[in-house]
Amino acid sequence: MLGCLLTWVDCLLGELLTMYRFIRFSTLLVGLFVAISGFAADSTVATLTTPDDLGPEVKQPIEFPHDRHAGNHNPSDPTKGGMEIDCQYCHTYARRSAVAGIPPLQKCIGCHNSIESVKDKPRIKQLFEAWEAKKPIEWKKVHDLPDFVRFNHERHIKRFVEQQKRPTQEACGYCHGDVKNMTVARRQKSLSMGWCASCHEKAHAVTAPGGTPIGKQAYWYTFQKPAAAAGATPDAIKAQGPNDCWQCHK
């Protein structure tokens, strides 16, 4: 009698479990659909992204020539080429804080005060006018991540520039594009979560022996059921990089 009852309860539980999984999955699908359609319908939401994924064009108060400052020397005509200044000379906080920072006006004046040849150019005049008026230049942010994202420049500079000895312009260029050939900086990458993950999955693949398909899903790793991660090595658990939401989201 008891055995019969147990079997029956067993069946019922199995049924419930299947149902639960189905309901959970379908809720997810419906939720996703509602979320996506809601987002598409509401066009008043400020656009973080544009059709080309590169964000809106930003108009700066002074059209800053990155190419003149950071571009390569032009041996045949030195007046045309760039000065090959390191990115970190002006964006000095990148190596020691989360944000790279926009240089203060002092930094511009520090050099331009002694560069007589360009002092009469309109953009430089504008610079000195602001300096005399003790007003900062109101630079606009180009690479503006959403507020719920935590990104750290310091860690990336430490890894690529200090540990792997890559040139600064290459390391910065992974996210900022070929700035040395731009005037005013423009976004070159989408800076979306999938785009971030496209690197982090490569660099921080979490693999398990025995073919458990948890590889290249570093940030999904913690969602795996214990059974799915049974073959995971201790190394896999210690994999660096974002393997939970809170490492990048705040």
Binding site: T27, L28, G31, A35, Y221, T222, D244, C245, W246
Partner: peptide
């Protein structure tokens, strides 16, 4: 959570 907005960190 229907959208896995809350989950466990390592």
């Amino acid at each position: 959570c229907p959208v896995a907005a809350t989950n466990h960190t390592p």
